[in-house]
Nucleic acid binder design. Structure first.
Lengths: 144, 144
DNA sequence: CCGAAATGTAACCAATATAGTTCCATAAAA
DNA sequence: TTTTATGGAACTATATTGGTTACATTTCGG
């Protein structure tokens, strides 16, 4: 169970909401598509609602729907909504500051990691949920 | 203890070897700089030796040293040597293939993740161990 | 040639994260 | 008022990571 699948599942969730065209979709239906437990879905949706990518409607005939158009949502938005702050492996990294190398390596690494992370996120920013949606439609065009 | 620090520690290890200028450095000395157990260091060095970034010498007065110049080692080389194959969170991701969305989302995500990963590694490729070494020397120039 | 010092691994433990699950309070539509 | 849904707490199982001990093997140095 290594590496988290939060981001992958979250993209799946939003792609599903786009596919359902604004209907109020209950978490159980999404969970069926993702093949997991509705609570897992709601946990992720909680973060997506907080960042205003999704709106939630409680009560009977309630559910979730996109809060904006698929064009306005990038994969980077989704990534940032559901991924914890990247530690770059520095969380567990506490070198001996009495050693000249240990004293300064952390700051040097930090700067490099931030740049590498930014490059990755820039690539995610280039892909919108609409792009994902279009690729889905290209594969199964007959669906509602 | 989340997120692994293998990469950060490995860069530290190689920076330390560069700092020690070709001497045979025992794992215990490196462990002192990183402030961890020598076995942890040897585990990482095992991968670095296998990828020919480092050479090992057994026996008394043995130790580890760079197998090539610091200019010839990029942070991406180190990253690839010690990080497992990136799963992009797809390891745990097995959607319902009977759903039109679930059936195709995985392939779409995979392509995007590969591009994002490549962008990150390209950034790492731009930094050499020599760059790290020079930054260290700039901070503490008087050291051996 | 013998002992000290080192690598190379296996085995195990503790801490942590993730995903899955059960349960229940709350809210809202029908 | 009943049904259906979100929201969230609490618990469990599993995997990974880093740390640790232990030990076999190798090799230098006296």
């Amino acid at each position: 169970m290594t590496g988290n699948s939060r981001f992958a599942v979250s993209v799946h969730i939003l792609a599903y909401l786009a596919y359902r065209q604004g209907a109020a979709v209950p978490s159980a239906e999404i969970a069926s598509s993702v093949d997991t437990n509705p609570v897992v879905i709601r946990r992720l949706l909680s973060a997506l609602v907080k960042t205003r990518l999704v709106s939630a409607q409680k009560g009977a005939s309630g559910g979730f729907s996109l809060a904006t158009t698929a064009e306005n949502i990038s994969l980077r938005d989704i990534y940032r909504a559901v991924e914890p702050e990247p530690s770059h492996g520095l969380a567990h990294f506490a070198p001996n500051t009495k050693c000249p190398v240990g004293a300064k390596i952390e700051a040097i690494l930090q700067a490099t990691f931030v740049k590498a992370q930014a490059a990755m996120e820039a690539e995610l920013a280039r892909v919108s949920l609409a792009d994902v949606h279009h690729q889905l439609r290209a594969v199964c065009p007959g669906k509602k």
